[in-house]
Design a protein around this nucleic acid. Structure first.
Lengths: 197, 197
DNA sequence: ACCTAAACTAAGCATTTGCTTAGATATATA
DNA sequence: TATATATCTAAGCAAATGCTTAGTTTAGGT
């Protein structure tokens, strides 16, 4: 929230916590439990700050979640950049999928993709600001998929668009599947998915 | 729950509702909202019976849900049978996917697959009896996929297994995707997925 | 050292959650 | 018709939910 300096320029006590640090903890909690199942009391414990501070900084549980999604996007930047800079067409996308699988791994188990999980949990009734943030996530990726698919010789515009649509949905499957399928099944999935792109 | 006849063979008032009928209503509610978001009060309204009756018949909210999953499996029987009787290999599976898409449609919007939604919502922390019921669902399908894939000439056992793994995960993607992607994107997904099976 | 205001703590708010219980109602047999 | 008993209604339970508020602490410019 906004903090403003009084007309007397008198400074007061300053925050004992770093907002990005506590959001990272919140994000991990949401990631593991989903939005609805994560309560303010759980957030309070995990973030290490009082409810008052949570509401002072982020306004609501919803607000904490939106910030978590933003941070998620940011944390994905490193593997997204790898894809951005790759020039080996579909092969680069395949590498991205494997990197993504690593990224969503936590202590041997997968948590799936936070955005995919949220899409699945809320469907279309997600609030607008949240939906906008998630759309950013998916649109960004799609642009990169299109970029790399176009690097492959002899692919028409139509083919590129169709395969991009395929890949977006394939990511959803990978995300959900990663939460209970074993390594072999996931490998089979990815290998087969990329066979004829 | 069990109802038993007394030693005096005296009959009393009988149920004013049909258990399968009210479960169907419950199932649709769970399907639209997910498990956690669906409250007993909502169920009570939708099922048209009192909380007491819900608990008398099904023991708990969890119990209602397990019965809903069972009914879901049962309702899918018609399209599963079509697949079961098909002898045209991969083409039959593709038809199943399109039928499945129709099956999960509700008033122009898709609700996704109830089992996939639940997998996504609960991950691995779903209770054992529920998980068992969901495993039945997925295993049944996988058997049919393997059957049809084997009908295609020249497919090794390894290829069949790999492609079956692919299809199971593809179904997850289709389920989640169907909830917010448009017709074109879903078609692109399915057409591309089946191109080289 | 003093004073202002932001950041803290912790208690408490109304509402909703899943589930139970007390008591009225209805029905198939005797 | 009388009786026994399962099914119904509706009120109520403790616990958990998201959020607020009253009051204390602490930092920094004067």
């Amino acid at each position: 929230m906004l903090s403003f300096v009084s007309e007397f320029e008198v400074m007061a006590r300053c925050k004992q916590y770093n907002e990005e640090e506590v959001i990272e903890k919140a994000m991990n909690l949401f990631w593991q439990n989903g939005y609805e199942t994560t309560s303010i009391r759980m957030l309070e414990k995990e973030m290490g700050i009082n409810q008052f501070s949570i509401y002072a900084s982020f306004g609501s549980k919803h607000g904490v979640f939106v910030e978590s999604i933003k941070l998620y996007r940011k944390q994905l930047n490193s593997i997204r950049n790898t894809l951005k800079e790759s020039e080996n067409g579909v092969e680069g996308i395949k590498e991205f999928f494997y990197n993504f699988l690593k990224f969503t791994k936590y202590k041997d188990a997968h948590k799936g993709c936070l955005v995919c999980n949220t899409m699945s949990e809320m469907g279309e009734k997600a609030e607008q600001d949240l939906m906008a943030e998630m759309k950013k996530f998916t649109q960004d990726l799609r642009v990169l998929f299109v970029k790399n698919l176009s690097q492959d010789a002899g692919k028409s515009k139509e083919t590129v668009e169709r395969e991009a649509n395929f890949l977006m949905t394939a990511m959803l499957g990978l995300s959900v599947g990663s939460r209970f399928l074993d390594r072999e099944q996931l490998d089979d999935y990815l290998e087969t998915a990329f066979i004829n792109l």
